[in-house]
């Protein structure tokens, strides 16, 4: 392995590498966002307080059962298998999905299954007093969730979401199995021409590392921004007694 070889590979293939990294990032970012939304939805559904027997509560129970089945299936099977089953399964019925969309779909559903548990945990861990205070000023359950509970939950699950984003950047490599031209697939294509396994994969490796490192730094920035300034300013508009 030599530095010159790496340089020449880069010189010849940089557009494919960059395009691969771009697709990887797109899949990871879209899937993390969609997955987080799925997780939020399931988490909220699972924590709606059930009033006695009514049609609404029965419907909710059925929905929650279906959502639990989804979570178990997607947490309990490898993503590479899910990708194949979804893509070729749908294709077997004569409908060929766009590969990129299939990829985003699989990673999103996978992310959603994990996020659902984080969100549920996040909602349950908010102290009872927050709900009571909101109820006591007359807020509905919906208003309480929107204005008091979920903002705190979202802040609390942000580190888990960041982890998920980083995992998605890496794990999207398995989508090469359905020939999505993400970074790993792009690298394989490059190798199929130049046969330089070690050097070509090393470049991909460094690119993955750059993307995950950048993602974790950006998320830390976002967390800081959400937390607001450490100090507060006194309100100077009024004089103080």
């Amino acid at each position: 392995m030599s530095f010159e070889v790496i340089l020449s590979i880069l010189k010849e293939n940089w557009p494919s590498y960059l395009n691969g990294a771009y697709i990887t990032l797109l899949i990871a970012i879209f899937s993390t966002i969609i997955g987080a939304l799925i997780g939020l939805f399931i988490g909220i559904m699972h924590t709606i307080p059930l009033r006695k027997r009514s049609i609404k509560s029965i419907l909710l129970k059925v929905l929650n059962f279906i959502l639990s089945v989804y979570v178990e299936i997607f947490r309990g099977t490898p993503m590479i298998v899910q990708a194949v089953v979804v893509f070729y399964g749908v294709a077997a019925y004569g409908f060929v999905m766009d590969r990129f969309i299939a990829a985003v779909l699989v990673v999103s559903l996978n992310t959603g299954a994990y996020m659902a548990e984080y969100v549920r945990g996040g909602i349950v861990s908010i102290e009872k007093g927050q709900y009571e205070a909101a109820e006591a000023i007359g807020m509905s359950h919906f208003q309480t969730m929107i204005h008091v509970i979920l903002p705190q939950v979202i802040r609390n699950i942000l580190p888990a979401t960041g982890n998920q984003l980083i995992m998605n950047i890496k794990d999207s490599a398995v989508l090469s199995v359905i020939s999505v031209t993400e970074l790993f697939f792009a690298t394989q294509s490059i190798i199929s021409v130049n046969y330089k396994y070690a050097e070509s994969y090393l470049i991909a490796c460094v690119m993955y590392l750059i993307m995950t490192f950048a993602a974790s730094q950006l998320l830390r920035l976002l967390e800081k921004k959400l937390d607001g300034p450490k100090d507060y300013q006194f309100n100077q508009n009024k004089e103080v007694a």
Binding site: E127, G129, Q130, E132, A133, A134, A136, I137, G138, M139, Q143, H147, V148, P151, Q152, R155, G228, Y232
Partner: peptide
């Protein structure tokens, strides 16, 4: 009815002003 709790139960996600504003805005 205005309720004051033993454990304060201020909304952790809002600053002091917003704590006193959110109910007026959203409920009233």
């Amino acid at each position: 009815l205005g309720m004051v709790f033993q454990n304060f139960n201020l909304f952790n996600n809002h600053n002091v002003l917003k704590n006193c504003v959110v109910g007026q805005q959203k409920v009233l």
